[in-house]
């Protein structure tokens, strides 16, 4: 009898295994967010450095800002971090969303690498992450003065991505906000 068909499941399994392995190594996905054009989801969570302080969308304070999802277990976040530091130095307002992490580790991480965030939302269970539809870290959301999400980037934001996807829109939103 022909034995080849019996190897089909094995071959399929190998192929699937390869996919899963590559997806482990990759940055999580760049999914077009259904939330672009929608208000940033409501949340009430602790601040990373000050556990007794509750932060919410009110703390966005009508500023045009970036919300950056990060975690200490996320390798790509390390690559991204220096660029966020330099953006913050240039006056871009960035809010951190510390995602599924341990508080102590996250604080040490920022101490070591510099803290570009105006404040960091501490979300150890990924509650806000689910509302946002976070697919993995890092992710960055551009929020306008009205608190509406205008752009989403899944994966690292570096100088190239900033110039291609964010710079123009960000400037435009800031100008609009200043006009009012």
């Amino acid at each position: 009898m022909n034995r080849l068909p019996l190897f089909i499941p094995f071959a399929l399994c190998l192929a699937l295994g390869a996919f899963l392995f590559f997806s482990l190594g990759k940055d999580p996905l760049d999914l077009p967010s259904a939330l672009v054009g929608e208000p940033f989801p409501e949340f009430v969570l602790e601040e990373l450095h000050e556990p007794e302080r509750q932060v919410s969308t009110e703390d966005f304070d009508g500023q045009v800002l970036l919300v950056n999802v990060w975690a200490t277990w996320c390798f790509a976040c390390r690559i991204e971090h220096p660029w966020l530091n330099s953006l913050a130095k240039d006056g871009v307002v960035i809010v951190g969303l510390n995602y599924k992490d341990h508080r102590k580790l996250a604080q040490d991480w920022l101490q070591e690498r510099g803290d570009p965030y105006q404040f960091s939302i501490f979300d150890p269970r990924g509650i806000l992450g689910i509302d946002l539809g976070v697919y993995g870290a890092p992710e960055t959301y551009l929020v306008d003065a009205e608190g509406v999400i205008r752009h989403r980037r899944v994966g690292v934001v570096d100088e190239r991505v900033w110039n291609e996807e964010f710079r123009e829109l960000y400037q435009q939103l800031v100008d609009e906000a200043n006009d009012q």
């Binding site: 034995r3 094995f10 399994c13």
Partner: peptide, 23 residues
């Protein structure tokens, strides 16, 4: 990585066994 390696070992080896011993 650990689970994937384990998964690969269990599923891969059993399916290979299936292919070889099926007849």
């Amino acid at each position: 990585v650990f689970i994937l390696a384990f998964l690969g070992l269990v599923v891969g080896s059993s399916l290979l066994l299936f292919a070889l011993r099926g007849p």
